[in-house]
Amino acid sequence: MRRLSKTQLVIVLLVFVFVTVAIVGEYFLSRSRRLVLSTTTSTWDSGLLGYLLPIYEQRYDVKVDVLHVGTGQALQIAQGGDADLVLVHSKELELNFTSQGYGVHRIGVMYNDFIIIGPPSDLAGIRGLTNATEAFRRIKTAGDLGNVIFVSRADKSGTNLLELKIWSLLGLTPKNTTYSWYWEAKTGMGNVLRICNEKLGYALTDRATWLSFKNELPNLKVLVQNDSVLFNPYSVILVNPDRYPHRNHQDAVKFVKFLISVEGQTLIQDFKKEGETLFYPLARDVPKAVELGFENQQEELVWYDSHT
């Protein structure tokens, strides 16, 4: 066997170092206690979790891995056994998730609200309405006349599902193939807002994303808000420990307890963007929670509070 040349030696060394680092790194990652939270983009992109999690992680010495995806995918990941709990906002999908036995102890944590934005010229004439359904009806009318466009996320996100629900109240299931004024963007909220800003379109958006993008959207204004149909409650659901015994049930419960504690709820209320609160506490306001679709809020609150 001939001696190795200098280059060969360097290559062998590099391989060795890389593989070692990869293996050791993976080992340390898997060793620390971790909690996998599957959630929607809004909770992450708004910065809420980036603000809450370090407090929790430091106190309980648990790392929280956040998978921030669309509501549908967030539940799908949990259903596949790859997450410990979900934080989402789509009542229908959530109830489906729990009724099929994938998740347990669904509880309302907070809510934010949706708004309808559009160009100040407002050719659909919806400014100042407090009835989102009526606003949508006017947008359709103006759209049919070729005066306005509406941009939909069309990505099965919670925002998208709410939008489709409002259309369905009008007996409509719009598609870009049926209405030329209805654009299916199939993208995130930020992109939809950017499209609206360029094309002077209308859209349904959550307030958080609107606030973080507002400065870059000179051609858009808030036109409709404060309809109860526009309130958007977030719930957490634990994955069913009987069905997913490999998941970290214990830390998941602890995390929810933190979120719904008086301290957690205060932290949520104190999280502000541009001086505005983005998420309103809901967990301990039982009547409001019931109104927003959490019929079992009281029981779940008791269950979590009594769990040690």
């Binding site: 992109d45 910065g47 980036g50 891995d65 956040v66 998978l67 995130g188 930020g190 870059e216």
Partner: peptide, 20 residues
Amino acid sequence: NIWLKTSTLTTEIVDAVQVG
């Protein structure tokens, strides 16, 4: 795309653009 676990320069660029 888990922050500080599986987030890379490219995935974070996508995320950062997403939130403006």
